[in-house]
Amino acid sequence: MKNVIPSYLKHQFLIAMPHMADPNFAHTLTYIVEHTANGAMGLVINRPQDLSLADILEQLRPDIEPQPLCQHVPIFTGGPVQTDRGFVLHPIGSTYQATVELDGLALSTSQDVLFAIADGVGPTKSLIALGYAGWEAGQLEAELADNAWLTCPFDADILFNTSSELRLEAAAKRLGINLSLLTSQAGHA
């Protein structure tokens, strides 16, 4: 018998199927940051909060008045784990104190990237999220087997150039799927 080598989903999108019952993930598009035999980590990229970068900066550096542009930089709900921890996805370019490269994309977790964005010297495109999605070993694979998710190749255009409310549909369309035509009775023909 041959060993089956699992295919990991790092640097891919997860599209929540219409029947996803978990309110943390219903109607979400998630970018997979890491996926190994030990589990997976991702960031939901289509759930803006009622917070802006200006709100975060008031907490991080209260003595400096945020630039007006900071009011228009949304903060996303990256997932239900460690919702007070920030993550910034951006194209590779400048590196910040805590930056990891992910196949042409960078993930920074230090405050210096936020200050650089606020001061107009940071990455021109970015997505700022609080919290992340985490899966234990085998959990994501089991959810995929249960048809909870579709996988889609990463597309920087969807992440950086598509408005958040259209990202889920854009990823599904990339697969040739119209989510509104899928029923919640997956697998019951």
Score class of each variant (00 low, 15 high):
H19L: 14
Q49C: 15
P62C: 04
H19W: 14
Y31P: 07
H19Y: 13
L53Q: 01
A54P: 09
P48R: 06
A37H: 15
L51G: 02
A16C: 06
F25W: 12
L51W: 15
M41N: 03
H27L: 11
L60P: 05
I32F: 11
R61G: 03
L57G: 01
Q49L: 15
Y31N: 04
T36K: 14
R61Y: 12
D22C: 07
G42P: 01
P48Q: 08
I32Q: 08
A54W: 11
T28M: 06
H11S: 08
Q59T: 05
I15P: 02
A54H: 10
L14V: 10
P23A: 14
G42A: 04
G42H: 13
T30H: 08
N38Q: 14
P23K: 14
I15R: 13
L9A: 05
L57W: 11
T30V: 14
M20C: 03
D50T: 15
L57Y: 10
L51A: 06
D50R: 15
A16N: 13
A26S: 13
G42C: 02
D22M: 06
I56P: 00
D50N: 15
T36H: 12
N46F: 00
E34M: 13
Q12S: 07
N46Y: 01
P62Q: 04
A37D: 12
L60S: 02
E58P: 04
Y31V: 03
D55H: 09
A21C: 07
G42S: 04
L29V: 00
N24V: 02
E34S: 09
R47N: 13
L43T: 02
T30S: 11
H27R: 15
T36L: 09
L60A: 01
